[in-house]
Design a protein around this nucleic acid. Sequence first.
DNA 1: GCTCAGGTGGTTC
DNA 2: GAACCACCTGAG
Length: 285
Amino acid sequence: MVTIENNCFSIPQICESGQCFRLDAVSEDTYELLAGSRYLKIGIRQKDPADETDGSGKADVHGETILYCTQEEYDSFWKEYFDLSVSYSDYIARIDADDDYLRSAAEFGRGIRILRQDTWEMIITFILSQQNNIPRIKGLIRTLSERYGRRRETPDKRVYYTFPEAEALSKASEQELRDLKLGYRSKYICGTAQMVADGRISLEALRSLDYADARAELMRLPGIGGKVADCICLFALHQMDAFPVDTHIKKVMELHYPEGFPFERYKGCAGVMQQYIFYYDLKYR
DNA sequence: GCTCAGGTGGTTC
DNA sequence: GAACCACCTGAG
């Protein structure tokens, strides 16, 4: 069991930030996370509610997060996964003092972190995300895992399924996937799984490319355009200059940054700013 | 019935 | 290269 006290680390906020589709609340103060073939139970302990005065939803930022894993598992995997060796306060401190909108967004979502998730899992997840809503995406991933993943048990003897390997998915037919309600994305999943399984795209090689090259390489896969490639670059490859622009971000950009977003100023952390904006817009819209 | 949900790919001008 | 449009599905 590992306890983390961090001002900029909130599992509920990460859960709602839309970067991870296998993190769910199972009770008010307990979450379950599936990552690749791993499972993690997470407890949330609030600080004294009397400390919270404005009821703005920031309450969960200050408190303790309990990861139900060994110190060794934390050191070797989860610490990096949650990007906990990096100070997000430093990112927030870089925000333009005159940019009221971004300052508010960052304050509102200060518990968000950019996770370092599995590349293959993000590729499939964000192909499925197009023209789709979050609950349905989660359902499709669950279905795919149950059908093509491996059955496992948690320490509490609860059953879960690992994320399907490219090899396993490459053997599925388009019709099989359509029957699972993936719709027109079925063809993309088939094509992508085959290209990864037979080595036409190397996931390992993606890690060593810079942002522009990784993005271009990802876009060779069917069903992956600029937006989805940016999501994979940010949430899996940790390319912090990736700035996925979906319909919501596009509207915010038009409204608050008609002259263009200052990417130069936020070199190395534009993706974090995107997440603050996305989450703020999602919750405030 | 119609629109919309975190888009992509193909066609057209 | 910008502007269409089809594409599965389920919820409101």
